[in-house]
């Protein structure tokens, strides 16, 4: 029995070890090294890559990433909770409504981001329509703004909130809701005092997933944000490509990983519900 299990786990273990854990180890090592004159990495060991994070230029980017991630998580919660509630109460049509959330979610992140470029650009559909209707005379600057980035992130990660919240709401014992009404609670009071507290595990899971995804986002700020709304992900990419400062990029990546792992602890304790 153990031999079969060994052969089953070996490919997965080798893959994770060789292509996930070792690369992370390399990044950790790089983050402690010094940048070479033409890129590349050299000894001596140094903490300088981490202390550079305090540089106001980089601190502003880290701060902005955190702020955007918090805002996006809050908006996703406000938009996603009622949608999850709607799906959970839809009876036999649940599966249909759930698919309606999942299908755009799975069908190409790049295209979904591009769709917002198409809508938001100066000559995009929103501006054309507003100009044609005479509401505005000059096109509004929508693309390459913080607004566009937050909108794109909310659009991209809303299903991460809907799914886990739906999963807890679906499992909610109906008699608890009846009991609440029976004890005199109006629908609003039942929502506030029974449904929301009991869906906390889903809300927590969804919030962490949205937060992690937003914090590490690269494509959305890259395509919708332009140069002024760079987030950590873009800074990392920049260090590994144009700036050729791998040690600093590695330090940034590691910080990002630490935040992600720190947030995962409460999530894993409760099981990985609705992760997919």
């Amino acid at each position: 029995m153990n031999r079969l299990r060994f052969w089953c786990l070996t490919p997965a273990g080798a893959l994770l070890g060789g292509l996930f854990l070792i690369p992370l180890g390399i990044i950790f090592a790089y983050s402690l090294l010094t940048r070479g004159p033409y890129g590349g990495v050299f000894s001596p060991l140094t903490w300088e890559n981490y202390s550079r994070l305090a540089d106001p230029l980089y601190a502003a980017i880290l701060w902005r990433s955190l702020l955007y991630a918090v805002i996006v998580t809050a908006i996703c919660l406000m938009l996603g909770f009622p949608l999850a509630l709607f799906i959970a109460r839809a009876g036999r049509r649940r599966n249909l409504y759930l698919s309606l959330v999942m299908v755009p979610f799975w069908s190409s992140f790049l295209v979904r981001t591009y769709a917002w470029m198409f809508l938001l650009r100066d000559t995009g559909l929103i501006n054309s329509a507003l100009l044609a209707a005479g509401v505005i005379r000059e096109p509004l600057t929508l693309l390459y703004t913080p607004f566009a980035v937050i909108l794109g992130l909310v659009y991209g990660y809303l299903p991460f909130m809907v799914l886990p919240v739906f999963a807890t709401l679906e499992r909610l014992d109906k008699s608890l809701i009846e009991a609440s009404a029976d004890l005199g609670a109006t629908p609003g009071a039942t929502l506030l005092h029974v449904i929301v507290p009991l869906s906390k595990p889903g809300i927590l899971a969804g919030s962490i997933l949205v937060f992690i995804s937003s914090l590490g986002a690269y494509l959305t700020p890259d395509l919708l944000g332009g140069g002024k709304t760079i987030m950590i992900g873009n800074l990392v990419q920049n260090q590994f490509t144009t700036a050729r400062d791998w040690p600093f990029g590695a330090a940034l990546s590691l910080i990002l990983m630490l935040v992600v792992m720190g947030l995962l602890v409460p999530l894993q304790r409760r099981g990985s519900e609705g992760l997919l």
């Binding site: 008699s175 009846e178 609440s180 009404a181 004890l183 109006t186």
Partner: peptide, 29 residues
């Protein structure tokens, strides 16, 4: 509506609120 009726139900599975203590359950109504 159920919350407008001065009746109260003891459910078969009791339907106690799992997130509230005994006191919280009793004070709920």
């Amino acid at each position: 509506r159920p919350y407008e009726r001065n009746l109260s139900t003891v459910f078969q599975n009791y339907a106690l609120f799992p997130h509230l203590t005994v006191r919280g359950n009793i004070e709920f109504g």
